[in-house]
């Protein structure tokens, strides 16, 4: 880490003077070098390949900022890359905005910047513009990050929940609930150690692979907040179709399942940050799953259910015992139960 005059973020680091220049020039810019950013203008000017643009924004406020398997910086890059990619677009450029709390150790900030640099490299996107603000102690929780992303949708690619048809297969790229349970079990106060790690990953490579194997893929989504249950309910409502899940097919790591059971939380409703749900025509499902399993972020790909014309706009499940039940939208945050 470069030596600066302070160990922690000072209000003056956001005041536009020498300290600001120091922070940006010595700590931030070296991590995100790109032709657009290095001009140091107030805006990035981009030359983009032809095609429709996909544009998305997301703000990251996760606590704790470092958790098993990742940190807030990596999440901020991967999250927006994934949001752009889920319409089939190839993500090209990101903006990054930081809100730093006075007193944040600069070593922590540097560690976050390094993991953002590595995540952007892995995803093949450039950070082309950015902003840094400092707020007084207590006005934010150490660091908040906003990222926005631009991507280009290749000609002929058209995805959306409205295209889902009865008979289609629902494919999940891997295990459920890893990110949400990693963060929840790492939170101060919960008081148990665990081996659960976040699955945070950029999925644009996996999306490209799916489009190559199955150009007729109907819809893709990354099931973040609210989990797979929420994503499938959104698909069912938007498509005016029913979705039936097979409980026995849902992949959950044993340690994640254990943590969920202890806290009384259903893994179907827990956030993922490196998984996607793909709805594909039934005759393409086998080829899509096989191709996904050959990709580092799709090793656990599996068909978890199918689209039906009964129970329109509803998600139901065939339980492990062979009964049927509803998989509803969650009401709010899942809260650990009393006993």
């Amino acid at each position: 880490m470069p030596i600066l005059d302070h160990d922690t973020v000072q209000l003056a680091h956001g005041a536009g003077g020498r300290l600001s220049a120091d922070l940006i020039g010595r700590l931030i810019l070296p991590r995100f070098t790109s032709p657009e950013l290095d001009r140091l203008e107030d805006q990035a000017v981009l030359d983009l390949p032809p095609g429709r643009l996909a544009f998305s924004t997301d703000t990251f406020v996760v606590s704790p900022i470092f958790f098993p398997g990742g940190d807030i910086g990596e999440l901020a890059i991967n999250g927006t890359v994934n949001d752009v990619a889920m319409c089939g677009a190839g993500p090209v450029a990101l903006s990054v905005g930081f809100v730093l709390e006075e007193g944040l150790p600069l070593a922590d900030f540097h560690r976050i910047l390094c993991s953002m640099e590595a995540a952007a490299k892995r995803a093949g996107v450039r950070v082309v513009t950015g902003d840094t603000k400092v707020v007084g102690r207590g006005a934010c929780d150490r660091i908040f990050i906003n990222t926005s992303g631009l991507g280009v949708v290749p000609a002929g690619v058209e995805l959306g929940a409205g295209l889902i048809r009865p008979g289609d297969a629902v494919v999940l790229s891997g295990t459920l609930a890893d990110h949400g349970m990693a963060v929840m079990t790492a939170r101060e106060g919960l008081g148990f150690s665990s081996t659960v790690r976040s699955d945070t990953a950029a999925l644009n490579g996996l999306v490209r692979l799916i489009l190559d194997v199955c150009p007729g893929v109907r819809a893709l989504r990354d099931p973040t907040r609210g989990g797979v249950a929420t994503t499938l309910n959104e698909f069912a409502c938007a498509g005016g179709v029913g979705i039936v899940l097979e409980e026995a097919s849902l992949p959950v790591r044993p340690d994640v399942r254990g943590a969920c059971e202890i806290l009384g939380i259903d893994p179907l409703y827990v956030a993922n940050e490196g998984k996607l749900v793909a709805v594909v025509p039934a005759d393409a499902a086998e080829a899509v799953v096989a191709a996904m399993r050959g990709h580092e972020h799709g090793r656990g790909a599996v068909v978890i259910g199918k689209v039906t014309d009964e129970h329109a706009s509803r998600v139901t499940m065939i339980t492990g015992l062979g009964a049927r039940r509803i998989v509803d939208m969650p009401v709010g945050e899942q809260l650990p139960r009393i006993c």
Binding site: T319, G320, L321, G322, A323, R324, R325
Partner: peptide
């Protein structure tokens, strides 16, 4: 009972 659908069986 409701989650596993035991009552239906």
């Amino acid at each position: 009972i409701m989650r596993h659908g035991i009552d239906q069986l």
